Simulated scan of single mutants.
Amino acid sequence: MKLNKIHHIAIICSDYKRSKNFYVNILGLEVLKETYREERNSYKLDLMAGGEYQIELFSFPDSPERLSYPEAQGLRHLAFEVDHIEEAVSELDANSIQAEPIRIDPVTGKKFTFFHDPDRLPLELYEK
C-alpha cells in the first residue's frame, strides 16, 4: 500500500458554535464548506490549515464524552506548526486559553507546547 498523505482529521464537538468559533476565529483555520445534515441534526464544517490539511468538525446530538489527555492510549494529540511559538501562545492567552509552559523537544531542539480545544482535545503548537 502507498499512502500519499493524510487526507483529513475528524473531530466531534459537544457545542458546535463554541468549537466553530475556537477553530475559525481563535486558531484561524479557513472554512472550506459548512453543511447542515438535517437527517442527522448535525453540522459538518470542513476547515483548512495552511492550505493543506483538512479538519472535519462534526456535531452530533448527545455524543458521549471521551476521556482524552496527551498520555492516554489512542490518538495522542493534534499538532499545528507555527512560525513563532511565543506569539502564538500570546494569542491563546489573549483569548483566555491557557497553554502549558513552552518546552524544547530534546530530539529536534524545537519549541512546543500543549493546550486544549473547548472539549479538552489535546492540541500542540510546534515551532517550525
Rank of each mutant, 00 (worst) to 15 (best):
P122Y: 01
E100I: 10
L47H: 03
P122K: 01
E65Q: 15
Y43V: 02
D117W: 03
D93G: 05
E127V: 03
I55R: 06
Y23W: 00
A88P: 01
D83R: 00
L47N: 11
L57F: 10
S42T: 08
R37M: 11
E87F: 06
E39D: 12
I12K: 10
A10K: 10
N95S: 03
V24S: 02
S63P: 09
I11C: 02
Y16C: 05
A72D: 06
N95H: 15
S63R: 11
S90G: 13
I11K: 02
D117F: 07
L78S: 03
L78D: 01
L3N: 12
H84L: 06
A10I: 10
L57Q: 09
P106Q: 11
R66A: 05
A94S: 13
R66D: 08
K2Q: 06
I97P: 08
K2W: 02
H8L: 07
L27K: 01
R103N: 14
V31R: 09
F60N: 06
E124V: 04
L121K: 02
K33E: 14
P106T: 08
L3F: 15
P122V: 03
F112Q: 07
D119E: 07
A10P: 07
E87L: 10
F60D: 04
A10V: 12
R103K: 15
P118E: 11
E86Q: 14
M1A: 11
S59G: 01
D119L: 08
E38A: 14
E87T: 14
R120A: 15
L67V: 14
F22Q: 01
D15M: 04
R76Q: 13
Y53E: 14
S42L: 07
I9F: 14
H116S: 13
P106R: 06
A88V: 05
Y16R: 01
V31D: 05
Y43N: 04
L32F: 05
P70I: 11
F58S: 08
N21C: 06
L75H: 04
G51H: 06
Y16K: 03
L78K: 04
H8T: 10
L45M: 01
F114E: 06
R18M: 11
F112L: 09
T113H: 00
H84W: 00
A94I: 08
F80H: 03
P101E: 15
Y69I: 05
D62K: 15
G109H: 11
I6V: 00
I102P: 08
F22T: 00
S68R: 15
L29D: 09
